[in-house]
Structure formats: structure tokens, C-alpha cells
Write a protein that binds this DNA or RNA. Structure first.
Lengths: 186, 186
DNA sequence: CGACGTCGGAACGCAACCGTATCGTCGTCA
DNA sequence: TGACGACGATACGGTTGCGTTCCGACGTCG
């Protein structure tokens, strides 16, 4: 009989807190405070900070993204990049992702949850694109799929999250073209 | 008249602590404990955790890497990837880099120090490789240099740090070939 | 030899959270 | 209408780190 609105307020507060101070500094007290809720309400639902975050990450992982299908490799890449870069522009995502990613280096459970989310998200979509290109004959059959995925996903992540530089007009198109060329060269 | 051996012990302890628990959880007490030193010795040298870390990051940034020069784009890339992947294999690097990178999203001073280190390290070397390729005529003149750098550095970082998967034999060679093709297509 | 400054160690009061327990209140069902 | 359970609030003792202060020991200069 837990109240759903309270649960939702906590979930939202966790995201905000995660973005604001990061996993390490995040406290149950802080979450409850931000959610306008008693600590009791939080502990009644999750046993610890870790369980809370794992639950949220898993929930996100469930939302499977649709694979683009424009009929060409470059078109698919372009679409993927547009969706991805829009997602990474959200402050919450751009703060939370690197934070959890760093935490994953220390906590195997977070690492696993993140891997799963990655596999069902970015990784899965990229895989679909590559396989469609292979089926279409645009990419040689028998390519190293893992390498192909790194080529597809790496540059935009590096630019958006690591370098944190703006994406000038035309960037995504050029990136899609260059990546397409790289895949065809495999 | 600060004793240099004490200073060095503290520096080493900071790296270990940073790798073990991360910037957020790292405490002056913990550093002093690990270094076998009094808190006094730390505070006498640095005013805060932030100053300490900024100092270390800046120190690393100074070590300029030599630009590879094998005479071909692919050879240069291959060499860069070998050096980079070896560096990223060190546990300290693979724990500390994502951690500071996440922290940079919250702290402009860390972000700036990291940007500088990046520019004088990976970024600088990659830039040298691309320009040499342009001079050699392997890459079209007038390419978007930033995009080129993303193509060069992104995939390996994604694979090593984000996906955290092993690099099978032959991976670096294939990656260099694919990246070369992408650059030539720009 | 004597003065000075750094050393490690210990203690200070203060603040934040931990996870638990105990309030009285309020909404919902039977 | 009465019982139940989740609610926010508050308090608990315990832990950890903050940044500062004082101490006696030691080394190194002058």
C-alpha cells in the first residue's frame, strides 16, 4: 500500500541528487529532503543507496530504443547520432552517466547494471544498424562486430562527454559519413 | 624546508586513494593515513583536497608525449593506440580518469585542468598525426580537425573505459586501419 | 651548541549521515 | 465508524571527516 506518488517523488529526487552531487556524495537524508519525504519512506522501499540506484538504472535499461531504418547505413547512423546527441544534451544524462560510469569501476553491481543498460540501449541499436548494413551488402560480412560498435559509438561519446565541446552545424552528418567509410573499410 | 620524501609519499598516497575510493570519497585524513604522515604535513603543503588534485593533474599534463612518426597515417595511429591502450591498462589510470572526468562535470576548475591535460596529451598527439597525414597528402587538406580528433580518440576510449571489454589480438591494427579509412573519407 | 622549523600524533568542537525507533496524523478500506 | 498502515517529523547513539591547535621528538642549519 505504498503511495505511488511518494515513490515517484523519491525516484525523481534521486536523479536530481545524482546529477547534483554524484553517487558517492549522495545521501539518503539528502534524497528524502529533496523529495519532501521522511527517511522512513525511502528505507521502506529500498534497503540502501545501492539498491535504489540499481533499481533506477535497471528501469531505464528496459526502455528498448527502436532501431532506425532509413534504408542506408549513413542514414541510420545519422538518425542514431541525432537521438543520442539529443539525449546527451540533457544535463541530467551528461552528469549522471559519467558519474555512474566512474562508480562502476569500483562496484561490480553497478558495472553490471550499466553494462546491461548499455547493451539494451546504444549498443543494441548500433548493432542493429551494422547488421542491417551487412544484410544490405554495404558492409562486408564477417566483420568484427565489437570493433564496428566501437567505431560507431566512440567518437560521439568522446566528443560529447569527454571533450565536452559543442557540436557545430553539420557535425553529425560528417561524423555519419566518416563512420560509414570506416565500416565499409572493415 | 619541507621534506621532499614526505611530499612524494603524499603524492603517491593521493593517487592510490583516488583510484581506490574516488575524488568525492577521498579525505585528507585518509591520504595522511595511507602516506604514514600527519594531517599537518598535508595541510602545510596544500590548502584543500581540490588544490591537491589540481596540482597532481597539472603535473601530469606537463609531460608532453612525443608524436609518433612512422611515415604513414596507419602506422602513426597504430603506435598511438599501442601507447594509449597500455596506459589505460594501468588500474590507476582506468580508475582515476573516469572519476575525475565525472567530477569535472561539477567542478569547473577540475574540468579546466583536465582539458589542459587532455590537450597536451592525447589531443595533442592525435593532432600531430592528423596534420602529418595532411602534409603527406593522405588526408584532404581543410578537414574539420576536431572531428578528426574525435574519430581518432573516441573508439579506443569507448572500448577501454566505457565498455571495459578486452582488446583481442589484432584489434588495434584493425582499429587503426578503419580509422585511417574514416580520415581519408573526410 | 642553540635556535628554528618540520615531523607524527593526539585531541579539539563541529557538522553530516548512518540506520533504527517512536511519535501523532491522515487516508483508505471493510 | 473503527482498524490498519503509510506518512512526515524527530530523536537516538555511533561513525567519519573537517580544519585547527598543541605537543615532544628530531634534524639541520648557522
Amino acid at each position: 500500500m505504498l503511495r505511488e506518488d511518494v515513490t515517484e517523488a523519491i525516484r525523481a529526487a534521486v536523479f536530481e541528487e545524482l546529477a547534483a552531487v554524484g553517487y558517492a556524495r549522495m545521501s539518503i537524508e539528502g534524497i528524502a529532503r529533496r523529495a519532501g519525504v521522511g527517511k522512513t519512506a525511502v528505507y521502506r522501499r529500498w534497503r540502501s543507496k545501492l539498491h535504489l540506484v540499481l533499481d533506477l538504472v535497471s528501469a531505464i535499461a528496459v526502455q528498448g530504443l527502436p532501431t532506425p531504418d532509413t534504408g542506408s547505413l549513413e542514414g541510420d547512423l545519422r538518425l542514431l547520432y541525432e537521438v543520442t546527441s539529443r539525449a546527451l544534451r540533457h544535463p541530467v544524462a551528461s552528469q549522471v552517466i559519467p558519474d555512474l560510469q566512474a562508480e562502476a569501476a569500483r562496484n561490480p553491481e553497478i558495472a553490471e547494471a550499466l553494462q546491461k543498460a548499455l547493451r539494451e540501449g546504444q549498443h543494441g541499436v548500433a548493432n542493429g544498424i551494422v547488421r542491417a548494413a551487412v544484410a544490405r551488402g554495404e558492409v562486408r560480412d564477417g566483420v568484427d562486430e565489437d570493433l564496428a560498435l566501437d567505431l560507431v559509438s566512440g567518437p560521439l561519446y568522446w566528443r560529447s562527454v569527454v571533450v565536452r565541446a559543442e557540436l557545430p552545424k553539420g557535425y553529425l552528418g560528417s561524423l555519419a559519413a566518416a563512420t560509414g567509410a570506416a565500416l565499409r573499410a572493415l
